[in-house]
Write a protein that binds this DNA or RNA. Sequence first.
DNA 1: TTTTACTTGCAAATGATTTGCAATAAGGAA
DNA 2: TTCCTTATTGCAAATCATTTGCAAGTAAAA
Lengths: 138, 138
Amino acid sequence: MDNRLHGLRITNQRAVLYDYLTHQSLPKTPEEIFEELPTGSMDLSTVYRTLDTFFKVHVIQKSYIQNKVYYHLTTDEHKHYLVCIDCHEMSEIDVCPFHEFESKIQKDNDFLVTYHPVELYGYCKKCKSNHQESPSTP
Amino acid sequence: MDNRLHGLRITNQRAVLYDYLTHQSLPKTPEEIFEELPTGSMDLSTVYRTLDTFFKVHVIQKSYIQNKVYYHLTTDEHKHYLVCIDCHEMSEIDVCPFHEFESKIQKDNDFLVTYHPVELYGYCKKCKSNHQESPSTP
DNA sequence: TTTTACTTGCAAATGATTTGCAATAAGGAA
DNA sequence: TTCCTTATTGCAAATCATTTGCAAGTAAAA
């Protein structure tokens, strides 16, 4: 019988990691994931290897933000992110003005676009005020 | 007298690196830069330090593509890039549908956007055919 | 069950980037 | 011009994220 997940053997570590991922709404780094998993769930290298395995069978998506790798479950939603330069908090947006331009870009440049991650960097609500004006002296 | 470049001491290494950068049209990684500079111009760590220094005084811009850092001179042009997944060749495009959306995004999310790098990943002219169909047997 | 191939943990390797420190050089001051 | 102070550089070692080799452990097919 087909006792597999996307053609993969179901091991305890894979089940734990998969379950973890289904509960995240924002992309996570391998390091973050490792920290947030129950202590002793698996080795950090297993986190890396398993994420890579999931990625290869398209269970998860990979993105590069700042200089780190982020993963999140594959969904049919097309999301982009706001990333705060100060506190590094991320939030998602679903508008994507690039979609309608893609076909023109493809034609003009003879280039086959497969994906276009977009992050908007700046200051979030909390950090905006600290950045624009220094707080008044006490 | 002001014998300085953006407030920085003019050293031989800085002059060489600055000159190099003025001749590039595409973003480059520190490693690439180091390789393309005349042999013995400077140490790789100096390349890293100098790029960082230039970035801090806004002489150059920093971007993260895949998992690498890229730098290019600050200009008033707003560019985005097509990056080939196969050969990693980069080319630039100047359409940017995000501009007109920025103010709405800022308002809706209470977020101050400072920059939005965008790369479109896919297959370039050369690599497209190899990807879509395997070459016929000889 | 037993077998076999795939997975894991651990430790060591790798690649990119950063850092400490002593030697060197820029540029303002004398 | 020359000197002095301080920033900058080269070199080697450290660090950080990620990858890998290998022996031991474990799914799942027979």
